[in-house]
Simulated assay, not measured.
Amino acid sequence: MENIRITKEFTFETGHALYGYDGKCKNVHGHSYKLAVTVIGSPISDNNHVKLGMVIDFGDLKKIVEEEIIDPFDHATVFNKNTPHLKLAKELEGHGHKVILANYQPTSENMVLDFAEKIKARLPKNIGLHSLKLRETETAYAEWFASDN
């Protein structure tokens, strides 16, 4: 059976600040992120299977990505856990705001690496994560490809 790639796209709003950065992004700001998740596998060929012809049900892929990425990151503020913004982070949390203290600088590059690991861990064994594309703005994005890693 031949491999097929399928893609599901997601959007979410996230704020962040880049600790130690020498430009505008050192300030807390936000983005309307767009995430394209592409998986690869063989379509189900069992005529008795309810998902005949699917690599993975788009709804199943959506559930994985929403639970691992969208639900935690949407309308959250992400800080590097080593940031001097910890006081601000705790104050925001104290007022009911969603804050993520990441083990990394929250750049698109590092976020896409984090997302790849989280999604790969949840995919069925017969489905591979082919690529991710995380668009931070209309003109800037980071991509992750399994073949590069």
Rank of each mutant, 00 (worst) to 15 (best):
T83F: 08
N103V: 01
A89W: 01
S147A: 12
I6Q: 00
I6W: 00
E2H: 10
V55W: 06
Y21N: 14
K24F: 11
K90C: 05
Y19R: 10
S32A: 08
I119R: 08
E138D: 15
N103H: 09
M111W: 00
L52N: 06
A89T: 06
S45C: 09
N149K: 08
D71M: 08
E138L: 12
K133C: 09
L52V: 07
H97L: 12
Y21K: 08
I127K: 06
E93W: 03
F10P: 02
A142P: 07
G128T: 14
N149L: 02
E136G: 04
L18A: 02
N48C: 09
H75K: 13
K133T: 10
Y33S: 01
N110D: 08
N149F: 11
K125S: 14
D74L: 07
K62G: 00
G15P: 03
D74G: 10
R122V: 07
H31D: 07
L88F: 14
T7K: 00
L92G: 01
H130K: 09
S42V: 10
P43T: 07
I6R: 00
K26I: 12
V39H: 03
K26Q: 15
K133D: 11
L132K: 05
H130M: 05
T107M: 00
E117L: 09
E66G: 02
K26D: 07
H49D: 15
F12C: 06
L123W: 08
L35D: 00
D114K: 05
D114H: 08
N103K: 11
K125G: 01
T137G: 10
D114T: 07
V55I: 06
E138K: 15
G53P: 02
E67F: 06
I56C: 04
P84Q: 12
D114L: 03
K51N: 13
D114S: 12
Y141T: 04
Y21P: 01
T83C: 15
H29M: 05
K24M: 06
T137Q: 11
N80K: 12
P72Y: 03
N103L: 03
H31A: 08
K51L: 10
I100E: 07
E93M: 14
L86V: 12
T77M: 11
S147Q: 12
Y19A: 07
D74A: 06
H85Q: 15
I56V: 09
E136T: 04
K24C: 05
T38A: 02
E138G: 15
F10E: 00
H49Q: 03
L18V: 05
K24A: 13
H75T: 05
L129F: 10
V112P: 03
L88N: 10
H95A: 02
D60V: 03
E93I: 03
H75A: 02
F58T: 01
L132Q: 00
I40S: 15
I4T: 09
K63F: 12
Y19C: 13
D71C: 11
F115A: 10
L18F: 03
W144D: 07
V112H: 01
K87V: 12
G96V: 06
K87H: 06
A17D: 05
L86P: 05
I127F: 00
